[in-house]
Design a binder for these strands. Structure first.
Lengths: 241, 241
DNA sequence: TCGGTCAATTTTGGATCCAGTAAGAGGAGA
DNA sequence: TCTCCTCTTACTGGATCCAAAATTGACCGA
């Protein structure tokens, strides 16, 4: 397996991660020259990488002006949740009859870890301690890991790609960390995961489907919280920056 | 409204159309030099265009070897149908309460035209005459137009973009035209359109949703027919061509 | 005849160079 | 002081040039 890759691909991958994680904030202007210096390449591969990001919808091109990291509107965020809900429901339905005992065991393992992290987060929040970013990231990863098992078993690469693309519109964890009232959601998430797992275990594809859909849609309240923080921080620097 | 655009964007758009329509067949190798001669530009914008097509999943890059138009596998085609079914269902559900009398009138108009074209196609097929490509294309466009009304009213740009992306995996109309036994589907399509329209008209979002989903999924038989023809024609030229 | 090695050719990936456009600074006139 | 105009500057889009990788094909030996 040759691990050949072009610089354009490498750069696109790195920038993609940074945009998704929020390290590069929405609205930021990406200068070709700056990037080429940073990655120590010429502007050519940088531009190709930017084209890819544009096709993925992460940045927008303004001819002769530059590229800017797309900021997400309230409507887009809501829509991304809708798409994820439908596709996760589909993936869960398809995955249910294909689950092996090993898969279920893996889900249990991840769920157990997820439950622990959830408790830790709640305790922290209740004690009024400042939120631990590393802990939060770990919690988030465990959350995604749970869903990733389903995607893997469902074996629907297109669905997986689209759903994960919609996932990224969270714009990192900045918004998540912003408000204390999200804590309730931790417990809810945990309970929903268990319900999904049980439905899968029972072999009820339709129930699992419905639960998965509701699981994503129930983030409605979360969406509104996220939107508040986005609204507060959502000013865009002009082109001349 | 300045219609500024970069050559890379223009080229990407043209190539996209040609790949989607099947004018450039799956498996074809795209040479940068050839394309740059054809569009009378240097290889730079060509490469940027190819990067975009790669991000859209239309072509695949092999480092230091070139790009090739991705051919669709049986699994991918099936999956694309699944995705379309879920997202069209969602769009239909969302659109139902937003439909104005004008929108419904437009659906009726399109449906009427679609019904006429359906009859023409059936008559042609029964008379044993060779299939009329232009007529078929028109029928196809009317079919899409019906769904496009729903997308427009639903006002979910992300859903629309993804669903239309999945739509394109049909690889043009070549496969559709291949088999006479598709004729039944014409009538079925027509009936399903009417049912969806009536459910929307009655304001039953859930019924409309279910009908839209089944409408797409019922193409299952079609999928199999398409797969046969793809299987027969699905040989890939090697790199050295 | 078949398989393997090595040079020639093709083609890609990346760097550099040039032209055109947009933003911004500064000056002239009202 | 405000507005308009011009000139400068910075940056993008595209063209050309160069190096590296892959394919081709000839040559050689078994």
């Amino acid at each position: 397996m040759s691990t050949v890759s072009t610089k354009a691909d490498d750069i696109a991958g790195i920038l993609e991660d940074e945009i998704v994680s929020g390290a590069i904030p929405p609205g930021a202007v990406l200068r070709q020259e700056t990037l080429s210096e940073r990655f120590e390449v010429s502007r050519t591969p940088v531009r190709e990488a930017l084209r890819r990001l544009a096709a993925l919808g992460l940045v927008s091109f303004e001819p002769n002006r530059g590229v800017r990291v797309r900021s997400i509107s309230a409507d887009e965020l809501r829509e991304a949740f809708l798409v994820r809900a439908e596709l996760e429901a589909l993936a869960t339905e398809v995955a249910t009859p294909k689950m092996t005992p090993d898969d279920l065991a893996e889900m249990d393992r991840i769920e157990r870890r997820f439950g622990e992290l959830t408790l830790e987060l709640r305790d922290q929040a209740r004690s009024g301690a400042p939120r631990d970013a590393a802990l939060f990231v770990e919690w988030m990863q465990a959350n995604y890991a749970f869903h990733d098992v389903i995607y893997r078993v469902a074996d629907l690469p297109l669905v997986e790609r689209i759903a994960k693309g919609a996932r990224r519109t969270f714009i990192g964890d900045r918004a998540w960390r912003a408000r204390a009232e999200l804590d309730e959601l931790y417990a809810k998430n945990d309970l929903q995961h268990r319900a999904i797992r049980e439905a899968i275990s029972a072999g009820s594809a339709q129930a699992a489907r419905t639960l998965a859909r509701e699981h994503v849609l129930s983030s409605n309240r979360l969406i509104e919280v996220v939107l508040e923080t986005l609204g507060a921080a959502g000013r865009e620097p002009g082109w001349g920056q």
